[in-house]
């Protein structure tokens, strides 16, 4: 087991785990923080796995994720804007 795999595991447990927790509870704003965190840590995890496999071609995946995660968070922030202000969920029946 090489260092990259250990790094990937650590990042998964200590990075994506908490990101999921942020997403699972709280207001829309804290969920967006979770998404942002997941995007950043996700890129790192993917890089680590690519290095662990010794396949530089794999690096295309984190590259795409980095691009999409930035734009994605922006779009989500924009569409959730009203909820964050009103402190209430969109699409909610209540």
């Amino acid at each position: 087991m090489n260092a990259w795999i250990v790094a990937a595991i650590v990042l998964l447990v200590a990075g994506l785990g908490p990101a999921l927790l942020f997403c699972a509870r709280g207001s829309s704003a804290s969920r967006l923080v979770g998404l942002q965190l997941a995007g950043v840590v996700g890129v790192l995890v993917l890089v680590a796995i690519a290095e662990a496999a010794g396949q530089p071609m794999y690096l295309i995946v984190p590259l795409v994720l980095a691009t999409l995660s930035a734009t994605g968070t922006l779009v989500f922030t924009r569409t959730l804007h009203q909820d964050v202000r009103a402190g209430q969920g969109a699409g909610d029946d209540g």
Partner: peptide
């Protein structure tokens, strides 16, 4: 239960699956 928040979680879930 709230779909707009679910969409955010779905995105994170997508990243997990990619990993």
């Amino acid at each position: 239960p709230v779909p707009s928040r679910q969409a955010v979680v779905l995105s994170v879930y997508g990243i997990l699956l990619a990993a």
